[in-house]
Amino acid sequence: MNKRTIDLWVGIFVAIGLSALFFLALKVGNLLNFKEERNGYELMARFENIGNLKPRAPVKSAGVVVGRIEKIRLDPKTYEAEVRIHLENQYQFSRDTIATIYTNGLLGEQFIGLEAGGDSEYLKDEESIKKTQSAIQIEKLISQFMFSQAQKSPDTPDAPTGNAAPAAGVKKK
């Protein structure tokens, strides 16, 4: 095996190896979008309950991904979840935008949906979204449903008020 052949093969190997790395970063890992994101700005939103929302989950408006969730923490004073959102510069939202936590399908991942309002002023970097709507929790929905059913039926003497109690009431039946 002469030197030129070895050089050629090693050159090919390194070249396709590096292009595989680029492929993974660009095509699979979406590095290009990430670069745009870095030029973006950050907003805060407070929710009573975020359900299963996770960092790096998408932020969508009208179904289009406009940013990602950067960080989630609990405010120790108000016991609200404080979510830091990273948005791309090209998307600006009015000051009365509503942030809602949605679920993708019945069991899918959760994301934040932004609905722009009519205010003429836009939200700026590090500002907070005032109007938020917490995640819909299926357990809560079910218990509310049970609760209303229980109230309708006459043979339940004590109408439960808590979240866990209706389940017990159902069992008694």
Binding site: L21, L24, L26, V28, G29, N30, N33, F34, P58
Partner: peptide, 18 residues
């Protein structure tokens, strides 16, 4: 491809793999 790109983070997933 779209779902893949939405879910795979280049730094978090690809970078840690490297």
């Amino acid at each position: 491809w779209g779902q893949m790109q939405a879910a795979v983070d280049w730094r978090y997933d690809v970078g840690n793999g490297v």
